[in-house]
Design a protein around this nucleic acid. Sequence first.
DNA 1: GCCAACGTTGGC
DNA 2: GCCAACGTTGGC
Length: 140
Amino acid sequence: MNFWLVKQEPSKYSWEQFIKDKETYWDGVRNYQARNNLQTMKKGDLLFFYHSVIGKEIKGVAKVTKEAYPDPSTDDARWVVVNLQPVTAFKIPVTLDDIKNHPELDSIALVKQSRLSVMPLTKKEFKLILNMGKTKVAGV
DNA sequence: GCCAACGTTGGC
DNA sequence: GCCAACGTTGGC
């Protein structure tokens, strides 16, 4: 299993909306590096959902329910989406500051590559952040 | 194929 | 709301 972090501005698509929808496809990625990460995702992989710009915090955990397929929001064959379902909300949101202040997390892509919207995490990093959110997920 | 111009993202 | 960083585009 692989671990990921995806970003979205809550004014565009929020965690709260995601919970209401129960499932969504992650569209609008128009960056090759992010796209390549989407294509690498496997069903059952776990992701953190991060709110950029407003909040700047990780809100919860989601899982991949369908692997990459062509983005229905464009005719351009280069872009893909995956389907995601919410798994659990964090008891405590983990902020960008929390991550920057953690010695083992201050060099992850979220901090170093602020414009990348889909990025991989190691299992160790995933566990650390999960603990900071006071949240548990089966199998991690 | 280089690189200047431009557009977008996202932290501040 | 500003602007730095960075990715993309297009002229040469």
